[in-house]
């Protein structure tokens, strides 16, 4: 079936690809396969390492794990609120920046700043502002609004993280939108104007449809990013997912099982695998709805 020449060609290609392949196999494909292997075993790494095959036990255990359910529920709640909000905010910010106002470049920098800060530092700064006697509560009090125990009250802790995350990631997607906005040919707007469209019409009937592939990208990236929420809730709760499991996310739970408790590495791998499937499903659903055929 394969001629000698094709074999040779393939050989040369693989030789040239080998550095990349090597890195990919070692750091991406290898670990993925190993994680799948782990998820079917009861693993004890400390001391005498032991791998005991347990079939689907790790997966059935998820169904019986109250904390896993809470973590999934928290994560889903987080995704459902954060992804649409940050996408819309990003679009609105980008549109205002693209409107040709004065000082546009200055605002572009100001809007983008939050994204540049590392999320760990950001979380610490926000925790300080969320403090019971902190900035946020002072502002709320000044405006005559109710104040909250942002860090300690289970019913608002996750919201506090949501607000912070929307604020810090929306600008990143804003930049992507901005690039796409500048791609929209002026002729489209001119044509719309001739048809008697006002600013709102132009935005809704020209800009938004034209940005559909970008929106699709932003939503998928947002989905993946939010499902993987870890560092913020980790720092917020000091690694416990508290108060009362309110900030427990799936990845935080995986971390706890993998590194905090001994001998549950296999179960952690199973949880990670389940999360991958959930993300896959969410992405697939999103693509089904938007019927987008663009490439990424």
């Amino acid at each position: 079936m394969f001629s000698r020449k094709r074999w040779k060609e393939a050989g040369t290609a693989y030789t040239l690809l080998s550095p990349t392949l090597f890195v990919l196999l070692l750091f991406v494909i290898g670990p993925i396969l190993f994680a799948i292997y782990l998820s079917f075993h009861k693993v004890q790494l400390l001391g005498t390492a032991s791998f005991q095959f347990v079939g689907f036990d790790n997966f059935t255990r998820i169904l019986d794990d109250t904390r896993a359910k809470i973590a999934l529920w928290n994560t889903v709640k987080y995704v459902v609120i954060v992804v649409p909000t940050q996408t819309m905010l990003a679009l609105v910010l980008a549109a205002t920046l693209n409107a040709g106002l004065k000082g546009e470049k200055f605002f572009r920098i100001v809007y983008f700043l939050p994204t540049l800060t590392s999320s760990a530092v950001l979380t610490l700064i926000f925790m300080w502002m969320y403090n019971q006697n902190g900035l946020v509560n002072h502002v709320l009090e000044f405006l005559g609004l109710p104040t909250y125990n942002w860090l300690g009250d289970p019913s608002v802790a996750l919201n506090a993280i949501m607000i912070m995350n929307i604020w810090s990631t929306a600008p990143f997607f804003m930049v992507i939108y901005l690039a796409a906005l500048q791609d929209i040919p002026d002729s489209l707007y001119e044509a719309a104007e001739l048809d008697g469209a006002n600013a709102w019409h132009k935005f809704w009937y020209v800009t938004v449809p034209y940005l559909k592939p970008v929106t699709s990208f932003v939503v998928i990236m947002g989905l993946i990013g939010t499902f993987q929420l870890f560092d913020q809730s980790y720092i917020f709760s000091g690694g416990s997912g508290g108060p009362n499991n309110a900030t427990l996310t799936v990845v935080l739970l995986i971390y706890q099982y993998a590194f905090k408790s001994l001998g549950t590495m296999g179960y952690a791998a199973a949880l990670a695998f389940a999360l991958a499937i959930v993300i896959l499903l969410a992405t697939w659903l999103q693509r089904k709805f938007s019927k987008e055929e663009s490439l990424y």
Binding site: G152, D153, P154, S240, P243, N244, K260
Partner: peptide, 19 residues
């Protein structure tokens, strides 16, 4: 004890806060 502590802390806080 680590598992026991984790679960105790989580629920005790919510009782402490009156939930």
């Amino acid at each position: 004890l680590p598992i026991i502590m984790n679960n105790f802390n989580n629920q005790f806080v919510s009782a402490f806060l009156g939930e």
